[in-house]
Design a protein around this nucleic acid. Structure first.
Lengths: 151, 151
DNA sequence: TGTAGTAGTGGGTAAATGTGGGTAAATGTG
DNA sequence: CACATTTACCCACATTTACCCACTACTACA
């Protein structure tokens, strides 16, 4: 599915040009209909093909709604999930509330992540990547599945 | 169903313009007839399509009425439930008592939440969201369903 | 190295949307 | 029954958005 990193500039209207190498697949998967929402762990956005998102939303809605942690997740994820369509030039208009959440200004980064993309402010992504690298080289606390992973 | 976040301004008469992207679906589902009531956990309002609300009200009415907790829920939810109609411009007049409960002044936020909407004062929503994010990243006390959720 | 095609970027314009407010009907009150 | 207040309906304006077209920068290939 999706992979790779793409530095992108938002234009003055808050639009993001989807890298051409993804466009055909996105058109094929969901006719250019995508859903963006927030990531609850990091200040970045998640971008799903519509069909992919709908499966996830079903799972989230099925959570027990009297459970406070589940209500939080529902409010955060479904509450921010916004439908987006690619325009004729293969661009997406990122809604202002989502841009504000992820602190996106001009320079952003699009990360392919399998069934979805992540959208980061470039500055925040570079800083977070450094943190990850530092933690990873600590080498401690890896779950068993990871320790057995051969690259 | 409904999803996404919409910042909205109430006008001087306490009216809220329903975002255009929801209007068709609302008209189709319930001819623009909605029911607003209070949320008992958070200081926000809940907004249901009429048919959706009627199912819920039946369930609430079926609760054992000698049980004090059930009576409380009945008084709070059914007692505050108010029928609203979209006007010709796709706006809803939010009744003063409900506005006061949720402390809605000018800037409000509409959150799509599956079968319903939530209406928050923008200020309160932003503050609550930060709390949720902080708690979510604590990572503790997640129900099993949530721990296994892969996004 | 030139040329053609593709990708990324910028911005104009018409249509749709959000906003404000006037007025008449309806409602509640003295 | 008259009055004051609220609500519903309507029209008009400001703003935003979607769509389109044009320009520039690359890339690939001759």
């Amino acid at each position: 599915m999706f992979r790779g990193v793409s530095p992108i500039n938002l234009d003055a209207k808050g639009r993001m040009a989807v890298p051409a190498r993804y466009r055909d697949k996105i058109t094929e998967l969901c006719c250019g209909e995508l859903v963006a929402t927030i990531d609850t762990e990091e200040r970045c956005l998640l971008l799903y093909p519509l069909a992919e998102w709908e499966e996830i939303q079903e799972k989230i809605e099925a959570l027990p709604s009297f459970n406070p942690a589940a209500r939080r997740i529902q409010r955060l994820l479904i509450g921010h999930a916004t439908d987006l369509n690619m325009d004729g030039n293969g661009r997406l208009l990122l809604p202002a509330p989502l841009r504000e959440y992820a602190e996106l200004s001009k320079e952003i980064v699009l990360l392919g992540q399998g069934n979805k993309f992540e959208i980061w402010s470039e500055e925040r992504w570079l800083a977070t990547r450094e943190e990850y690298l530092a933690e990873a080289s600590g080498g401690a606390e890896l779950p068993e599945e990871l320790q057995n992973l051969s690259l």
